[in-house]
Structure formats: structure tokens, C-alpha cells
Write a protein that binds this DNA or RNA. Structure first.
Length: 598
RNA sequence: GCCCUCGUAGUUCAACGGAUAGAACAAUAGUUUCCUAAACUGUAAAUACAGGUUCGAUUCCUGUCGGGGGUACCA
């Protein structure tokens, strides 16, 4: 079935040709949904046609409308308001449309075909020196959701995680543990491994600060003190030893990282996300070094007197970028170059996307250029899905100031809130503890995920830990509730012996809320496409909220199960069922589950 | 200094260059003999400022003011 906005656009081209003997480019025709307060389904803006018609906006709209009404069978009527041509479609059209999408359980989703692209999506990418916080949650939810949306658009998404398991920051935790822990393990103290290791990272920082202060007091300037502090010197030695493969260092490193991985796995599981492949920087950074050293030998890169290898990007409007430290150890960029190359060898992707915060916009710009300059043709297919920071009302999260919102804590709090709220409403009496906990979990995560994903990924967002995330209004639970209500009604219908909903006969006239719902159904396909192109889950989130809102209005204004006319009843049940299905499918794209009762 | 971003109701978020700038929370007034009131219906409330381009600007351009980020031999 051809999409109606395409039909309308082509019809407008014909109209302008016939009425004004002019060719209007299809790109200049804007077909949009008619705003609620006006009569009609679709609206055409006629201002761009005035130069052809040489007539007033109203008259142009009037003439175009008349042509469409007479020549396009789907157009039932039209009205003109201030140069906007509002078109109403026939109930036959809407009926045909509904029957059409009803026969398709996956309406809105595309399947893979010969044009399917393979898109590798890197997301999460944690450091193994501290537990995950709210910023990582945003990253994880975005990565997961974008992957889902890409698949819904008919492409293949390969989800990869790049664990930053080596580097100076890890050495800091290791060093502090060595000095302070007296050999204790997370198990012994009953802590999640990532939190345990994170505590030593903080401990390092505390001691390091103390050492800097001491040196400054003795007359050293601050920059120098940062370099000369004892623990920092030792951490650097440790990094060097690690790269040289010193057994003792490697062994401690392995042990501590494994503690962290166990903790991460738990958090990922709670968030309901996962990966197709996990990369470790410790396994890829050598590739980066190798490539850079080779390029140096071939004369593609240069070296400073201290031995630092760098690339000059000043011609590109950027700066000089160091690719290898003077002591030969690798940097973030070194490693990312190696990882990118290995990833291409592994997947031969059509696109390699990185879900990373916008503070690294520069890094990815440089990464792409460096790889291109090193002669990797596929580097042009690298993209950065850049997202904004999660800020607190008083600014950034800072671990030193103890203002970091911990991921595990937040999830747990959400579950407790969901539980309290649910028990207050008392709708789950008669369920087993296990069933109830499952429902609390779905609601809690629904609230959290929706709260984060409804905001345009590109933008910074504010999270106020003082105010708990809402469960009313524009929220995940509101949408879940709408779904649950529908299921409850469908169950009752079934009990009444109504099984086949879609065999309703022709509906002569629709009520306004019914048309509005059908209009919303119509949008779903395009919403998925747009969300995929823009790599932006918030488009899905806003859509599914609108749909749920629209349904609730329908639900309040029109009887469904209580409708006496059996044909209308089946039709409305069918509308309800479809709404439920779209809600479920759309929420799934956001990684949000639906409960059957709440 | 240079570069990149963002400034929309009290608050958190929406708005392919299109109509009277939408929601939600908070405030306030209502709706349960009615399919789950985690719902629905009202009221009040906003485009930082000054120019420009346009039939039309929250959206594009310039400037001012204000926030955030980057410009590391950190990640």
C-alpha cells in the first residue's frame, strides 16, 4: 500500500501543473499532520506555490484543494485557513489502512535485505577503575536502544564493548590497593567488585592530593608537584612495568580487573543490556603501537627530540596530536587506532559508530583523520554518536565531591520507589512475591530508562537526585499503564468469547478519537525511520508517549467493552489491541519491558 | 586566546523554516454508582537580548550577555 503522503505529494505536482502550468519540485511540497485544533488529517502548505499561481494564498489553496478533492479518491474534503490547505481523508482510506497494518504483526519494522548494512556500534566502554554511574547509564541505554532501532530499520547492528582495562588510572587503583588493602578481597568485605576497586581509586586520589600539598608547602610549584608526587611516580613506573609484562604487576592487574568485571556484569544484567563482542584495550593497544611505529619508519609520522611520536594536523585546523609517549607507552588515541583497525578486520563493517560523550567530539574527529592519513580507506565510515552530559542541578558529577550518582544505587532506589508506589495503590494483591518483584523491576526500569531516553541524546540533561523520578505524567510507567489497561480489556473480551477482533465489518463513520488513533498509527513507520537516521531514541520515546496519551483519551471518551453495537465493539477492541502492540514494540526499541498487570 | 555547543512556563522536556510555541511535574478547579484514577477534563504560566534574511524565524546569519565542553606525553 503506497503511503498517503507520497500520493498527496504526487497529486499536488499534478494539480500545480494542470492549474498553473508549472513544474513544482517535489522537495518543495510539505505534507504535514494537521494540527489538532483544525479539521483534517493532512495539511499542505501552499506558500511555495504562490510564485506559480500568482494568486493569493487562500485562493491557491482553494483551487489546489478542489483539484485534490475531485481527482484523488482518498481525499474526502478540504478546508483552507490562512494559506494552509487541510485535507480530510475518507473513512474508506483509513479503514483500508488499518486493515493493512493489522495483518502485519511487525508493522513499522523493516526486515534485512540485500541493502542491509552492517553497523558496528561501540558503547558502554567503561574504565575498570571505578563503578558505573548515571553518565554510563545514559551511554548504555543509548547504545542498546540505537542498536535496536537500527535493526528495526532493516540494518544489522553489531554491539561491541571496548573495556578500558589498561592505563595509568588502573595502576592508581592497583597501587592504592597494594599499600592500603592488606590483601583484602571484595568477597571478604562483602562488596561488589567494581565498588571495591573504585574505593581504592578514590583512596589513591586522596593520598596523591596530600603528597602534592606537601610538596607545594615545601616550595615546589603545583605543576611540578603533580609530576613529582611519590605515588604518581610509582603509578607511572607500574604502567611501564605492566607494558613490559612484569609478572607481579600483570597478576594483580588481572585479579583486580576480574573483580570489576563481575560487578559490571551484574549492573549490565540489571539494565538488561548486552554485547555481541567485548574488546579489551590490553589486547588492542599493541596493534596501535605497531601501526604508529611502522608509519614513523615509513616517514608518515614524525618524532620530537624527546622521542614523542606525533602527527601534525594544523593544516586541518586542528593541533599537533601525540600518538606515543616519549617513554614509548601508549595513549588513549594509540589504543583507539589499534582497536579501530582490528574491528575492521573482524567485521568489515559498512559503518563503525561510537557512542561516546560529546566531551570527546574532538577525539573522534582526530581519530578519523589520523586513520585516513594512515591510509585506511574505511575510516571515512567512522561516526560518532555524541551525547550530552548528565548534569546535576549544581553542575557536573564529581567523584571527588561525592556527587556521583551511582548506577547500582539508583536502580535499587527506583525499585524501592516502584514498590512503595505500587503497594500504596494496592493493585497487586494476590500476586506472589516473585511476581510482584518482577513487576516492580519492570516499572522501575521503565521509569528510569524512559526518563533518560526521552531527552534528545545530543543535549545535556539535568538529573535532580533530590527529586525521585516520576511515575505519573510523561513517564515510562504511564505508557506501561496504558498497555496494561489494554491487556486487561482484551482478557475480558476473550472471556466474553470475542476472539477474532479483526473481522469487523465496514465502519461507516469514525469518531474523532478513533481517527486520531489511526493517525498516530500512521506515524509509527516514519518515526522508526527518522529515529534510525538520526540515531535518536527520543523520537521513539516522544512518539509512544503521544500514542499512549491519545489512547487514554479514546478510552475515556468512548465505550469499548461496553459498546452495544457488536461491530463497533470489535473495531474498538481491534484498535486497542493494535495500540498495545505498537506500545510494546516501541518500548522494546527503548529497552523497556511491559508488565501484563500493574 | 582559539574551537564546539546550549539559553523555551517556577521546574524537567517537545516543536522537517510554517498556523494561536506543545507536554509533564509543581500550583489550582473538577471527573469514580462507568472497561485499572499510575487515568481523564479545565485554569494560570515561556522563546536571554539587539539586529538581519524570509510571505513566514524558537529554528538560518551577525553581534551582546550567560551556562557547558574541548584545546594534555588524562581517559
Amino acid at each position: 500500500m503506497e503511503k498517503i503522503d507520497i500520493i498527496l505529494k504526487n497529486a499536488v505536482v499534478k494539480a500545480i501543473k494542470q492549474l498553473y502550468n508549472s513544474e513544482v519540485p517535489i522537495s518543495q511540497i510539505s505534507v504535514q499532520k494537521t494540527r489538532k485544533e483544525f479539521e483534517g488529517d493532512f495539511t499542505i502548505v501552499v506558500f511555495p506555490f504562490l510564485r506559480f499561481s500568482k494568486k493569493s494564498p487562500d485562493l491557491t489553496a482553494e483551487e489546489t484543494g478542489k483539484f485534490l478533492k475531485e481527482n484523488i479518491e482518498e481525499v474526502y474534503d478540504f478546508n483552507v485557513i490562512k494559506g494552509f490547505l487541510n485535507l480530510s481523508l475518507t473513512h474508506q482510506y483509513w479503514q483500508k489502512f488499518f486493515r493493512n497494518i493489522n495483518s502485519n504483526k511487525n508493522y513499522g519494522f523493516k526486515t534485512q535485505n540485500e541493502n542491509t548494512k552492517k553497523i558496528v556500534i561501540e558503547y558502554s566502554s567503561p574504565n575498570t577503575n571505578k563503578p558505573l554511574h548515571l553518565g554510563h547509564i545514559r551511554n548504555n541505554l543509548l547504545g542498546w536502544s540505537v542498536s535496536k532501532i537500527i535493526e528495526a530499520g532493516g540494518d544489522k547492528a553489531v554491539k561491541v564493548n571496548l573495556v578500558n582495562d589498561r592505563g595509568i588510572h588502573i595502576c592508581k587503583s592497583m597501587l592504592a590497593w597494594k599499600y592500603l588493602a592488606e590483601g583484602k578481597t571484595p568477597k571478604e568485605v562483602g562488596m561488589k567488585g567494581d565498588h571495591f576497586v573504585g574505593d581504592y581509586y578514590v583512596a589513591f586520589d586522596k593520598e596523591y592530593k596530600k603528597q602534592i600539598a606537601e610538596l607545594v608547602k615545601n616550595g615546589m610549584n603545583e605543576d611540578e608537584a603533580k609530576n613529582e608526587a611519590q605515588w604518581m611516580k610509582e603509578a607511572r613506573i607500574m604502567l611501564k612495568e605492566w607494558e613490559q609484562g612484569k609478572e607481579e604487576v600483570r597478576s594483580l592487574w588481572k585479579t583486580m580487573n576480574n573483580w570489576v568485571y563481575k560487578g559490571f556484569e551484574e549492573t549490565y544484567k540489571k539494565l538488561g543490556i548486552g554485547f555481541d563482542k567485548i574488546y579489551y584495550e590490553s589486547e588492542t593497544y599493541l596493534k596501535g603501537k605497531e601501526v604508529i611505529l611502522k608509519a614513523l619508519k615509513d616517514g608518515a609520522l614524525r618524532q620530537k627530540e624527546g622521542g614523542t611520536v606525533f602527527i601534525d594536523l594544523t593544516k586541518e585546523g586542528l593541533d599537533e596530536k601525540v600518538l606515543l609517549r616519549s617513554d614509548g607507552t601508549a595513549l588513549y588515541m594509540t589504543q583507539d587506532i589499534g582497536t579501530a583497525i582490528i574491528r575492521y578486520e573482524d567485521f568489515k563493517f559498512d559503518e563503525s559508530a561510537y557512542v561516546v560523550g560529546n566531551e570527546q567530539d574532538y577525539h573522534f574527529k582526530v581519530l578519523k583523520i589520523v586513520l585516513e592519513k594512515l591510509g585506511y580507506d574505511w575510516a571515512k565510515n567512522i561516526s560518532h554518536i555524541s551525547y550530552g552530559m548528565v548534569e546535576l542541578p549544581h553542575g557536573k558529577m564529581k567523584s571527588r565531591e561525592g556527587t556521583v550518582v551511582d548506577a547500582d544505587d539508583l536502580i535499587e532506589e527506583m525499585i524501592q520507589t516502584a514498590k512503595a508506589k505500587s503497594e500504596e495503590l494496592g493493585k497487586l494483591d494476590g500476586f506472589s512475591e516473585e511476581e510482584k518483584n518482577e513487576i516492580f523491576r519492570k516499572i522501575a526500569l521503565g521509569a528510569l530508562k524512559y526518563f533518560i531516553l526521552k531527552v534528545d541524546a545530543k543535549k545535556n540533561m539535568t538529573f535532580n537526585p533530590e527529586e525521585s523520578i516520576d511515575f505519573n505524567g510523561n513517564t515510562g510507567p504511564f505508557i506501561q499503564y496504558t498497555y496494561v489497561r489494554i491487556q486487561s480489556m482484551l482478557t475480558k473480551a476473550e472471556e466474553q468469547g470475542i476472539n477474532e477482533l479483526n473481522d469487523f465489518e465496514n465502519i461507516k463513520k469514525f469518531e474523532e478519537p478513533e481517527i486520531s488513533l489511526l493517525n498516530k498509527f500512521y506515524d509509527f513507520e516514519e518515526v522508526i525511520t527518522e529515529a534510525g537516521e538520526k540515531r535518536n531514541p527520543s523520537i521513539i520515546a516522544n512518539y509512544v508517549y503521544d500514542l499512549a496519551k491519545e489512547y487514554n483519551r479514546f478510552y475515556h471518551e468512548l465505550p469499548v467493552l461496553k459498546e452495544e453495537d457488536f461491530n463497533f465493539k470489535k473495531f474498538r477492541l481491534s484498535l486497542s489491541e493494535k495500540t498495545g502492540l505498537i506500545i510494546k514494540n516501541a518500548l522494546d526499541l527503548l529497552g523497556i519491558e511491559v508488565p501484563e498487570r500493574m
